[in-house]
Nucleic acid binder design. Sequence first.
DNA 1: AGTCTGCTTTAGGGTAGCCTAAATGTCAAG
DNA 2: CTTGACATTTAGGCTACCCTAAAGCAGACT
Lengths: 235, 235
Amino acid sequence: MAAVTHAVEDYLKVIWKLSHRGREDERVPVGDIAAHLRVSAPSVTGMVQKLQGMGLVQYARYDGVRLSAKGRKIALEIVRHHRLWELYLHTRLGVPLDRVDLEAERLEHVLSDDMEELLSRALGDPTHDPHGDPIPTKAGAMGTVRGDPLPSLALDTSAVVTHVSDRQADKLRYLVTLGLVPGARVVLLHRAPFGGPLTLRVGRKRCAIDPDLAALVRVSEEAPAKPRRTPPRSR
Amino acid sequence: MAAVTHAVEDYLKVIWKLSHRGREDERVPVGDIAAHLRVSAPSVTGMVQKLQGMGLVQYARYDGVRLSAKGRKIALEIVRHHRLWELYLHTRLGVPLDRVDLEAERLEHVLSDDMEELLSRALGDPTHDPHGDPIPTKAGAMGTVRGDPLPSLALDTSAVVTHVSDRQADKLRYLVTLGLVPGARVVLLHRAPFGGPLTLRVGRKRCAIDPDLAALVRVSEEAPAKPRRTPPRSR
DNA sequence: AGTCTGCTTTAGGGTAGCCTAAATGTCAAG
DNA sequence: CTTGACATTTAGGCTACCCTAAAGCAGACT
């Protein structure tokens, strides 16, 4: 059988991601894959046919793609690698939250089983990455995203950020500048009417934020297991 | 100009390594490159012609290859990446000395400039990798291998291992089992005549070793700056 | 000089993964 | 039920890198 190349891993990961957008496991349109991988649609068709030949996806012309069990296993392995590296980069090297994804994108393909084990252990066998996304176990079990959307938090209640979506890099970058990162303490001070901005206290600072943006942030009233943030040693 | 792909980086690194075998900067035969990359000779000829087109090597038919300044710069960058990763893997993740090379071989191609900076800093801007090989600076300056060949050590003199060659994986593996790794204390107890085995004390243990093998180890009588060996956190 | 041996190069192919242009299927609106 | 808009697939090509087989060159030995 053909080899699992970097490209194959990328395709499987994207298919996995896109099939989880709604509640249910969806068939993923070829065009969406193309858009996310920044590749032409014909390239996707070709690769997807190859993946089917390898038994990694089910695919019917004009009807989208779905991961097979085998394909999902590989996808989750890559996601695990990705999130372990993200956590390492953030907590051990001090890479800012809005840049870990880009770096992990390349490191995820380079992690042997032995190393994965050692990396996980060195990080304390973590369950969540620095954005608060769950890290699949080696067996392929996924935890959940903790917390509730920030806009639904009760007024004047202290909470801790548990998750920041990394889907849109530009928005993540902005949220980071506001200090809305996992572990931060937040209080919702005011909710303007007609879907207007929310006024927050984040740590010691105050800010106003659009509820759509705030929806990318999840918070929990109980103090959660906060991701470790050992700063890297400086010289 | 064509891109610096992983393959290009591999070729440049091997050419750099092979041109440093003797004292002087040598022209490297195509066949040697082929053997070290485990690739056919025609493949090397083709790639080397391409590298010349990119201005990274000088090359004349039937007369071997030499790095240009531009080529050497890239080669040293890769060597720097490789050795930084080796040090990280060994000291932070606890990867055994005889396995770091293999892992670093793939990681070396995946390290952005920003990350390189952060990784180096997190490791304390080290000058030598865990085998005792010097790590080139970002500017391309190379330190030296410290110490003298173990067989030339005076009898009954305490010394510290400063370098273990990683050229031959199988021999390195054996040296590691003997405890002959950088930082180890060694005393040469006896030298058998006619090029016979050396009797050593390594730490608390005693062992006999062929002088050819021992020549892969370098030692220094002064206590050198020993590579840090923070063990990884266990669960 | 001739010739043999062993590198090295040329010739000719193959695979993986990407592309554009053109053909084809789907779906919804008229 | 036809047609137009749009998604998708087929067709045909390109680049990077690798291979084997055959030709070509160089240095040693006679």
